[in-house]
C-alpha cells in the first residue's frame, strides 16, 4: 500500500531566493499584498489567506560572535493526523479533506462555518479570509500532483532544497541527509518526520529559525 507523498525541505541548501514563495502565488492565483519595509528581508511578515508560503528570515549571532542567517520556507506540514482536521471535523463535517493518494490536507469552502479561534494547529498555519471567512493554506498543489506535476514551490527551487516524492523515499532521503549534515553540524535534525508530510531539516535549534518551526 502506498504511503502517500512527502516534501523534504532541507534548510541547509535553501538560499532564501523566495522562488517558492512567488511560485506558490502564481500557481494558486494569489495576489501580491501591500507590504512595507519594516527592517527585515522577510515580507510578507506572516502567512495570510493570500500567502500560503512565506520564507522566514532569522538573523543573530553565533557563539563565536559571527553572524548567522537562517531561512525557513514556511508552509503547511500536511500532518499524518492533522489536528486542524480533527478540530474542524468536530464542528463542521467534511470541511477538510485528506486526499487519499497523496495525504494532502485540503480545506474546502465549508471551512467558513468554522470559528477560527477553535482551529488547532501546532505550527500556526491556517489563516482566515477576512471577507469570506473561508480558511486558507497550502494544498500541497494536489491539483498539480494529480496531473503528473510536482508542487509549484518544489519545481521552482534552484538548489534542490525542496524535494517531492513518495513518502518512504523522502523519509530515507531525510535520514541520509541528516546523517551527512551531522558531520558538519552536530545539531542537525529532521523535524517531526513521523508526524508530518512536509519534513524540514535544520542544522541548529529549530527555535532559532521560527518559534513554531517544530510546533508550539
Amino acid at each position: 500500500m502506498s504511503n502517500g507523498k512527502s516534501i523534504l525541505v532541507d534548510t541547509s541548501l535553501c538560499t532564501a531566493c523566495r522562488g517558492c514563495q512567488v511560485a506558490c502565488k502564481q500557481w494558486n492565483n494569489l495576489p501580491g499584498t501591500k507590504t512595507k519595509q519594516v527592517g527585515t528581508y522577510q515580507n510578507p511578515q506572516d502567512l495570510s489567506s493570500d500567502t500560503w508560503k512565506v520564507v522566514r528570515f532569522a538573523d543573530g549571532k553565533k557563539e563565536d560572535g559571527k553572524p548567522y542567517w537562517y531561512f525557513f520556507s514556511e508552509m503547511c506540514r500536511h500532518c499524518i493526523m492533522p489536528p486542524c482536521k480533527l478540530s474542524i471535523d468536530m464542528t463542521v463535517k467534511d470541511a477538510v479533506i485528506q486526499d487519499e493518494a497523496t495525504g494532502a490536507v485540503v480545506y474546502t469552502e465549508k471551512t467558513k462555518k468554522m470559528p477560527f479561534k477553535d482551529v488547532m494547529c501546532p505550527y500556526s498555519i491556517p489563516r482566515q479570509n477576512p471577507k469570506t471567512k473561508v480558511l486558507a493554506k497550502c494544498t500541497m498543489c494536489f491539483d498539480r500532483i494529480k496531473n503528473g506535476m510536482i508542487p509549484a514551490c518544489v519545481k521552482s527551487c534552484p538548489t534542490s532544497a525542496m524535494v517531492f516524492g513518495d513518502r518512504n523515499e523522502i523519509l530515507d532521503m531525510a535520514k541520509k541527509r541528516v546523517a551527512d549534515l551531522k558531520k558538519t553540524y552536530p545539531k542537525a535534525m529532521a523535524i517531526n518526520p513521523d508526524d508530518v508530510r512536509v519534513i524540514f531539516i535544520v542544522t541548529d535549534d529549530p527555535n532559532k529559525y521560527w518559534k513554531f518551526a517544530a510546533g508550539g
Binding site: 512567488v22 501580491g32 507590504t35 512595507k36 519595509q37 527592517g39 515580507n43
Partner: peptide, 13 residues
Amino acid sequence: WQSWLTEAQPQVY
C-alpha cells in the same frame, strides 16, 4: 511592476 516581487521587497532600505 510585478506585485509578488514588490510584496517581497517593497521599499528602499
